[in-house]
Simulated scan of single mutants.
Amino acid sequence: MRVLIAPDKFAGTLTAVQAAEAIAAGWRRQAPGDDLDLAPMADGGPGFVDVLHAALGGELSAVTVSGPHGSPVPAVVLRVGDTAYVESAQAAGLHLTSGPSGSDSGDVGTGDAGTGHVETATSAGVGELVLAAVEGGATTVVVGLGGSGTNDGGAGVLAALGATADCVLDGGPAALAGVTSVDLAPARARLAGVTLVAASDVDNPLTGLFGATKTFGPQKGLAEDRIAEVDGWLESFAAATDRRTSLEKGAGAAGGIGYALLALGATREPGIALVAEAVSLASRARAADLVVTGEGAFDFSSRAGKVPYGVAGIASEALRPCVALAGQVLVGSREMRALGIESAYSLVELVGEERALGAPAEALADLAARVARTWSR
């Protein structure tokens, strides 16, 4: 039996590569004769560059950029031909701030040395990553969006690329209060001749009921009673910059970094589709008998551009069944099938939360072995 294993990361515990290897190890234990094809996936969030490097090869260049609160953080630029790939989470990720974990999903870490509140967190380091890619000779720069700990509308990105305003652009959303004028011309001039692609894992606009602040702000540490004011700052920023673009799908991705890129002329591409094409997932699914995917928390938000939904869609087009392994399964069977998943299996239900977090690779392998008993021939 041929099994395609295409999971996302299990946020906070396993990278996508580690998750795929753990699933394969458990599957082989139960069904050693099966032919396993490992295709770690990403949706634009954490792990985006690693997955693409594993699939495409290319050259990794180490750079140091500004973290969300000013301290230097390490990041990499992946260069494949004339195209460079960068990951917003490396420069502005939730793991670099003091915010709690959540969707737009990142991993919680210790934060950079100047860690502070989301209202003062800047995305400037992402702009520095784009600039490093351009200065390295790339004519196309693909920016993976997701897992951010910032909510500044991408103002920091614009500042790092040379935009100016009648306020401080790289001081977080609080610094945007009262903004009335933003000049994007210097940033656009700096990117002349460069094609920008925003690889987004969400469809949200920048502001409003479904915008970046309302949807993702609380998961980054923003108090409920601060949402309206912070969203108002981004409304003012959009009015001074490019109001129409702020309404586009993906403008609210990564706390508004998507908006900054779109305002500079970027095209938007779903991150899962970009990665699926890079790893030739469709042809690999057609060659398989079963597709296995997974992520840390499988819930109905997985429909919004997340890996399991994207992988299940490709499996469906190939007329192959798809099952999911997850840290937690938070949907019922009806919702599961609406997402294109035949069955979903919970790590926490099998081994308990303590072991799932304490020994995630071993626990995931155990779960995979159990699933293989049901699905392998």
Score class of each variant (00 low, 15 high):
Ser376Thr: 02
Arg190Gly: 12
Asp299Cys: 02
Pro205Ile: 12
Arg286Asp: 14
Asp104Met: 12
Gly45Leu: 00
Arg244Thr: 15
Asp43Thr: 11
Gly99Pro: 12
Glu349Ala: 14
Ala113Asp: 15
Thr110Asp: 15
Gln219Val: 11
Ala238Glu: 07
Ala263Val: 01
Ala368Phe: 04
Ala212Ser: 11
Gln90Met: 14
Leu357Pro: 07
Arg334Ile: 15
Gly265Ala: 07
Ile257Thr: 05
Val63Cys: 01
Ala16Cys: 12
Val141Ala: 05
Ala372Tyr: 00
Glu349Arg: 07
Val49Ala: 07
Leu161Asp: 04
Val126Gly: 01
Val157Gly: 10
Val331Gly: 01
Glu277Trp: 08
Arg244Gln: 15
Gly45Val: 03
His95Phe: 15
Val275Gly: 10
Leu78Ala: 07
Val130Thr: 09
Val86Ala: 04
Thr195Val: 13
Gly109Trp: 04
Val323Met: 13
Ser181Tyr: 12
Ala361Thr: 00
Gly146Glu: 11
Gly332Phe: 09
Ala91Met: 06
Ala55Val: 11
Val3Trp: 00
Gly352Lys: 02
Arg337Ala: 09
Gly111Asn: 08
Gly45Thr: 06
Ala368Pro: 02
Ala324Gly: 10
Glu59Tyr: 02
Arg226Ser: 13
Val157Glu: 04
Arg303Ala: 15
Cys322Gln: 05
Ala344Arg: 02
Gly156His: 02
Asp170His: 04
Asp104Asn: 13
Ala212Trp: 05
Phe298Cys: 02
Val118His: 07
Arg243Lys: 15
Asn204Gly: 08
Thr150Ile: 07
Ala212Thr: 08
Asp50Val: 00
Pro72Ser: 03
Pro218Thr: 03
Ile23Val: 14
Gly178Ile: 13
Ala185Lys: 08
